[in-house]
Design a protein around this nucleic acid. Structure first.
Length: 644
RNA sequence: GGCGGCGUAGCUCAGUCGGUCAGAGCACACGGCUCAUACCCGUGGAGUCGGCGGUUCGAGUCCGCCCGCCGCUACCA
């Protein structure tokens, strides 16, 4: 690495309690795209991702599996690395918070902040579960004061623990001033406003240590305490630079551009982290961008709900639907994940719209363009790149505009906008072919003119592939290969290659080979049938049904759950036993409406704490336009009657 | 509750300082082409720009109120 300041881009370090999902894939993919773009533009780039391994929950998850914690995190870190490799994501560094290089720096941060008075000793109070060795926020604890962990449910203790605190409260004004003076620092804009509102309401000091549960980074000089997870995790961005030992490397890298999901933008990346850096005397990050989520039915998709595909599985699906080679299906997925999302906002995930987009953009527009052009090159120019007739000023100018447009979109993190820019050229080329109709020219004996048109289109395709390389590194390499170019676009210099008429006449092109075969209805039907066979149908067996314990209950009491609009807390009798239920029926029913009524309750559902209230079962209701309509017995029945 | 945002063609959304802003893409219909992965190209529909008032010569574009939806509101990697 030279001495010039690198483009240092980061993703959050991912929590190793499960495998990569579509959310972490989105962040990492976006970072990969930006890193590849900057690299092609000739900047030194350092792309960092990694895993967060010090959380107490990780330790517990390992213990539950009867596995040494280190081995557990090793395996999950490997899983992340493999997933990224499969998705054609190429990072420069993968940091793990259990690594000594990170632990040292966290402790150094702690020491410095203790020294300058920003960390002080205080009393942390909270609900503590002895069994889980975990603190819970008051908002997570129900009135029953039982452990929110559904598998635990033991009584919690109100404990006071001597802990260290970070004087976050002292940084509000400095943060606000910095935000004001650097309008592009936090993006998107509407989230910046959330940060401002958050800071303006007043910042509170933050506890940064916990009693040592046998896992985590020890507090220097106090082995009975560990650094609390957020304080530890955020520092990875600096510890990966080699600070403070390798100041040369640090100076080339820091500050970084941070990319993350919106859930950890406001409080952590845009508030706590910059304040920590200010305290230690380091520059704050260069840019901080929080993107939206893929949603299903308006809610954040999650693996536990099983409603969003696993990224690798989605690539396999695309390959199956279309018949595309797996690596090209991966690139197609990369394209779709970026193209189908307004990067700052949430986007609704739909397989169908992914398929439509695949067909219209990749198969019909881009793929078919390459295919039809090469076909004509073989027919009308003996499979060699022909001579241009004259400089095509119009297309050359369009290329320049798009090049500039891409730079602008990249700066604003509008990654879908980058792709929209490129499609201006794809569309123009398809149209240009129709306008010029080289097949007619050839038939009329105007061979050179026909060939000139083909040159222009080939050149346009070459540029599109160059521009698309950060998004689809493998597919664009195939395109250049088919054009007879001996190098890969990802390794090309944007500056020298993003210029009209770089394509060398005379070189042999390859026989056209569809990169992105269309997804047809027939293929889809076959796939669906296959899936049905493989996964079993949607039928459940009578045994499955018998696992459900459904009873008639009587509502003894009902009251709204504070600070919610949809929730009622119900106390019900299920036949000699009282249960508390949280039900989302407040939009349809008031407490008086339901008290005394008989309802249908699923009584052996795993309890869950909702808004601080533990719900010990689920009331059954019909859903009409999103509102709940209660199910009740046709005539009064003994409370506790089984439903079957 | 407080702060912020959104509600524009069937769908997803653009609309910068108020005056060709009533738009794009997809979908649909019709037409053209035949080099191509039944592709590509062209044309079209018309939507009270959430509702009601107001400011203005003129308002999706500013102001007020109302309806609906959403985000943030501290320890959730």
């Amino acid at each position: 690495m030279g001495s010039e300041k690198a483009y240092y881009i980061t993703t959050p370090i991912y929590y190793v309690n499960s495998s990569p999902h579509i959310g972490s894939t989105l962040t990492t993919l976006a970072a990969d795209m930006l890193a590849r773009y900057q690299r092609m533009r000739g900047r030194k780039v350092w792309f960092l991702t990694g895993t967060d391994e010090n959380a107490i929950k990780v330790h517990r998850a390992a213990q539950e599996r009867g596995m040494p914690t280190q081995q557990f995190v090793d395996e999950l870190a490997t899983e992340f690395q493999q997933a990224w490799k499969t998705m054609h994501i190429e990072y420069d560094d993968f940091i793990r918070t259990t690594e000594p290089r990170h632990v040292r720096v966290v402790q150094e941060f702690f020491r410095r902040m203790l020294q300058n008075g920003d960390i002080y000793k205080g009393i942390y109070e909270g609900w503590y579960c002895v069994s889980d060795e975990t603190f819970f926020a008051p908002s997570d604890v129900g009135e029953d004061r039982l452990c929110p962990n559904a598998e635990c449910r033991r009584p919690l203790q109100w404990v006071q623990e001597e802990d260290y605190f970070f004087r976050l409260s002292a940084y509000g004004d400095r943060l606000l001033r910095y935000i004001e003076e650097h309008p592009d620092w936090l993006e998107p804009e509407f989230r910046k406003n959330e940060v401002i509102a958050f800071i303006k309401q007043g910042l509170r000091d933050q506890s940064v240590t916990r009693a040592n549960p046998g896992w985590g980074i020890p507090v220097p000089g106090e082995p009975d305490k560990v650094i609390y997870v957020w304080f530890d995790a955020l520092i990875n961005y600096v510890s990966a630079t080699g600070w403070p030992e390798d100041m040369g490397r640090y100076q080339q890298l820091w500050p970084a551009v941070h990319l993350m999901g919106k859930e950890i933008f406001v409080r952590f990346h845009a508030t706590l982290w910059p304040a920590m850096l200010m305290s230690v005397g380091l520059p704050v990050p260069e840019r901080i961008f929080g993107h939206g989520w893929w949603t299903i039915g308006g809610e954040k998709g999650s693996k536990s709900k099983g409603n969003l595909p696993h990224p690798v599985q989605l690539a396999k699906d695309i390959a199956t639907w279309s018949g595309a080679e797996f690596d090209l299906a991966v690139d197609a997925e990369r394209y779709l994940l970026i193209r189908e999302m307004q990067f700052g906002l949430d986007s609704e995930f739909s397989e169908e719209s992914f398929r439509k987009r695949y067909n219209s953009d990749l198969a019909n527009d881009l793929g078919n363009l390459l295919n039809r052009t090469l076909n004509m090159v073989w027919r009308y120019a003996q499979g060699r790149v022909p001579q241009p007739l004259e400089h095509n000023a119009e297309l050359a100018q369009l290329a320049e505009h798009i090049d500039r447009g891409i730079a602008e979109e990249v700066y604003r993190f509008r990654l879908n906008g980058v792709l929209e820019q490129i499609w201006r050229m794809v569309s123009r080329l398809n149209k240009y072919l129709d306008e010029q109709a080289p097949w007619s020219l050839y038939r009329n004996g105007e061979v050179e003119r026909a060939q000139g048109v083909l040159y222009d289109v080939l050149e346009g395709i070459r540029l599109c592939a160059l521009w698309l390389a950060p998004t689809m590194p493998v597919a664009t390499a195939r395109i250049w290969e088919q054009l007879g170019i001996g190098t890969q676009p990802v390794q090309a210099s944007w500056q020298t290659e993003s210029v009209w008429a770089r394509l060398q006449p005379g070189t042999s092109v390859q026989q056209p080979q569809p990169l992105f075969p269309r997804i047809t209805e027939e293929a889809l039907t076959v796939t669906t049938e296959k899936e049905t066979e493989m996964e079993g149908s949607n039928w459940i067996t009578i045994q499955d049904f018998q696992k459900l314990e459904i009873k008639i209950a009587e509502v003894k009491w009902a009251e709204p759950v504070p600070n919610t609009s949809k929730l009622l807390k119900l106390t019900v009798d299920i036949g000699g036993e009282e249960r508390t239920l949280v039900a989302g029926i407040a939009e349809t029913y008031s407490p008086q409406d339901v008290i005394g009524r008989q309802i249908v309750v699923l009584t052996n559902l795993q309890p869950a704490t909702i808004r601080g209230v533990q719900s010990q079962g689920m009331l059954l209701a019909a859903e009409v336009d999103g509102k709940a309509i209660l199910l009740t017995p046709d005539k009064p029945v003994p409370v506790g009657s089984k439903v079957r």
